[in-house]
Design a protein around this nucleic acid. Structure first.
Length: 488
RNA sequence: GCGGAAGUAGCUCAACUGGUAGAGCGACAGCUUCCCAAGCUGUAGGCAGCGGGUUCGACCCCCGUCUUCCGCUCCA
C-alpha cells in the first residue's frame, strides 16, 4: 500500500511537471479539489472524449448527441429529486466528534420513545421535525434537539454544534438580481448532465424522428459541492461526465441493462488495458431513481474505485418531469406486441443510463500508462519514465528529430513535419542530444519518433523509434504518415 | 469537519538549532555531438505559502490563515 501511495504521488507529480494537470489558480494557493488541464492534459482529455463520442454516436446508429446548457430551470432539480434528497442538515457532537444527519438523530430518539411506550411524544417530535425541516429552520431544529435533551449515543452528551447544511448543488443568482436570498432568482449548476438529456427527450425524439429504443449522448461539466473532495482528480467539485441515456420499452429494462453492461466493458477493453484492471460492482443500496445499478470499477493506484456507472433509472425522471412540467413525456410505440396483436401504444419510456467520469477515465488511462523502467546495464545506471498511452489517446503522436541541427537535416525534418502535421499532432525538436529528446517524448507518451540523419539525404529513409520497446527501424520518409495513421 | 505532519529556485534537497540562502537536476542561449537522460561555456530563476507578533535582527521562536499529504468521519 505504501508503494501504491508513492506511485500515486509520482503520477500526480509527473502530471504537473509535464503539463498534464495543474492545481487550479495555483498562484493563489489553488482551489480545493479543482484542477486545470495543461497543454498535454487537454489533448489527452480531448482524445478520450472523441473516442467516447465517436463510438457512441457512430457505432450505434440509434444514438445521437446533444450539448445542453449547464444552467437549467430550477424546477428541473425538484423533479429530479436533487433538491430534496441532497439537502441533509447535519449536526456534530463536540465531545465524540461524530456527525449525524439531523433527521436520523431525531428519528432515533423518537424510536427510543416509542420503545418506551411514549408514542404520543414521539409522534409530536417527528411532526415538529418535519415542519421545521420543510422550512429549513435550523435554529428551530437545534432547539428541538436541545429541549428534548437528545444525546449523542457515543459520548452521551448534548454538546452539539450548530446545524449546518451540506448542499450537494452549487447555486448562483440568475439575471440582474441584487439579493442572493431571492429564491426566485436562484439557479443551480447542474450536479449531473443527465437532466439536460431528459428535458430534451421530446425535442430530440420528435425532431430526430427517433424510434425506441434509442439513446441520447452528452459530454459536459457537472458540479458537486463535495464535503470531502480529495484524491487528485478522482473527486473534483467541477468535473466532466460522458453520459448516455437509452430510452426503452417498459419491461425490457433487465435485458438492456445487461446489454449496456457488456457494451461498456467492451469499450474499455478495446483500449488494450488488460481485463483484470476492471470489475463490476453491483449496488445493493439503490439511489432513489434506480431499480438496478452497478459500477465498472478500475484498479486505480488508490485501489478499485468507480469509473463508470450503469443504472437502470426506470421511468423515474421522465415521469417526474411530466408531473412537474405538465407536458406529456410519452412515446407512441406503433410496433405490434405479439402477445396482444395490438401496438404497444403510449407509454413513458424506461431508461438505462451509462455514465462515465471523464476525469476518472483520464486518471485511469494515465495511471495505467505510467511506467518507471530500470534500463541499467553493468556499466551504467539508467532509468526512464514512460507513459504508454494507447496511440489513439496519446496527446502527441509523432516527434520529428534531426539528429544534428546542421547539414540540411533540419530542413528535411521540416518537410516531414509539413507532410504530417495536418493529419495528427506532431512535435519538432532539434535541441539537445537525441537520447534526451527520446526520453522527453517518453515522458509525455509520444508513441513514435523519427530521426533524420545523413543517410536520409542519400536514400530518403529515417529511423523510427518505438516508445514502448525503444526499438528502431529504418523506414522510407514516404511511409511515416501511414505508419502513424495506421496505429490510430 | 476532526486529529497528525509538512510548505526554501520548475523539480529533489541543503545551510553554526535567530544574524537577511546554496547545490544537483531541469530550463534558456551558444559550442560540440551520426541514435537513447547526466561533454563544454554562459545566462536567467527564490524577498523562504501568506499575514501578524516576539527580537537590535528570523527561513529557523509564537499566533492566525491558506494549501498539500496521512488517518478518521461524511457522502455515493
Amino acid at each position: 500500500m505504501a508503494n501504491e501511495t508513492n506511485r500515486f504521488q509520482a503520477i500526480i507529480s509527473h502530471c504537473k511537471e509535464y503539463g498534464f494537470i495543474f492545481p487550479s489558480s495555483e498562484i493563489y494557493d489553488g482551489l480545493q479539489a479543482v484542477y486545470d488541464y495543461g497543454q498535454w492534459g487537454s489533448e489527452l482529455k480531448k482524445n478520450i472524449k472523441d473516442y467516447w463520442w465517436n463510438s457512441m454516436t457512430r457505432m450505434y446508429e440509434n444514438i445521437v448527441g446533444i450539448d445542453a446548457a449547464i444552467f437549467m430551470h430550477p424546477t428541473t432539480w425538484k423533479a429530479s429529486g436533487h433538491v430534496d434528497n441532497f439537502n441533509d442538515p447535519m449536526i456534530d457532537n463536540k465531545d465524540s466528534k461524530k456527525r449525524y444527519r439531523v433527521d436520523h438523530l431525531i428519528e432515533g430518539y423518537a424510536e427510543m420513545l416509542n420503545a418506551e411506550g411514549r408514542k404520543q411524544e414521539a409522534e409530536q417530535i417527528l411532526a415538529g421535525m418535519d415542519s421545521l425541516l420543510a422550512k429549513d429552520d435550523f435554529t428551530g431544529l437545534k432547539k428541538l434537539i436541545e429541549e428534548n435533551k437528545i444525546k449523542c449515543p457515543i459520548s452521551g452528551t448534548s454538546n452539539w454544534t450548530d446545524i449546518r447544511q451540506f448542499n450537494l448543488m452549487f447555486s448562483t443568482e440568475f439575471g440582474s438580481t441584487v439579493s442572493a436570498d431571492d429564491e426566485d432568482n436562484k439557479v443551480y449548476l447542474r450536479p449531473e448532465t443527465a437532466q439536460g438529456i431528459f428535458v430534451n427527450f421530446l425535442n430530440v425524439q420528435k425532431s430526430g424522428r427517433m424510434k425506441i429504443p434509442f439513446g441520447i449522448a452528452q459530454i459536459g461539466k457537472a458540479f458537486r459541492n463535495e464535503i470531502v473532495a480529495r484524491q487528485f482528480i478522482f473527486r473534483m467539485r467541477e468535473f466532466e461526465q460522458m453520459e448516455m441515456q437509452f430510452f426503452i420499452r417498459p419491461g425490457t429494462q433487465k435485458d438492456w441493462y445487461e446489454y449496456w453492461k457488456e457494451e461498456r466493458l467492451k469499450w474499455h477493453l478495446a483500449l488494450g488495458i488488460p481485463k483484470e484492471n476492471y470489475r463490476f460492482h453491483d449496488h445493493i443500496k439503490l439511489a432513489h431513481y434506480a431499480d438496478a445499478a452497478c459500477d465498472i470499477e478500475f484498479n486505480f493506484p488508490i485501489g478499485f474505485k468507480e469509473l463508470e456507472g450503469i443504472h437502470s433509472r426506470t421511468d423515474f425522471d421522465l415521469k417526474n418531469h411530466q408531473e412537474y412540467s405538465k407536458k406529456k413525456m410519452q412515446y407512441y410505440d406503433a410496433e405490434v406486441d405479439p402477445a396482444t396483436g395490438k401496438p404497444y401504444g403510449n407509454y413513458i419510456p424506461y431508461v438505462i443510463e451509462t455514465s462515465i467520469g471523464l476525469d476518472r477515465m483520464f486518471l485511469a488511462v494515465v495511471s495505467h500508462a505510467y511506467t518507471e523502467e530500470d534500463l541499467s546495464t553493468p556499466e551504467k545506471k539508467d532509468d526512464r519514465v514512460v507513459l504508454k498511452f494507447p496511440p489513439k489517446l496519446a496527446p502527441m503522436k509523432l516527434a520529428v528529430l534531426p539528429l544534428i541541427k546542421k547539414d540540411g537535416l533540419p530542413e528535411i525534418a521540416r518537410q516531414i513535419m509539413d507532410d504530417c502535421k495536418s493529419h495528427f499532432r506532431c512535435f519538432y525538436e532539434e535541441k539537445d542530444t537525441i537520447g534526451k529528446r527520446y526520453r522527453r517524448m517518453d515522458a509525455i507518451g509520444t508513441p513514435f519518433c523519427v530521426t533524420v540523419d545523413h543517410q536520409t539525404k542519400e536514400d530518403n529513409t529515417v529511423t523510427i523509434r518505438y516508445r514502448d520497446t525503444m526499438k528502431q527501424d529504418r523506414v522510407p520518409v514516404t511511409e511515416i504518415r501511414k505508419i502513424v495513421l495506421d496505429s490510430l
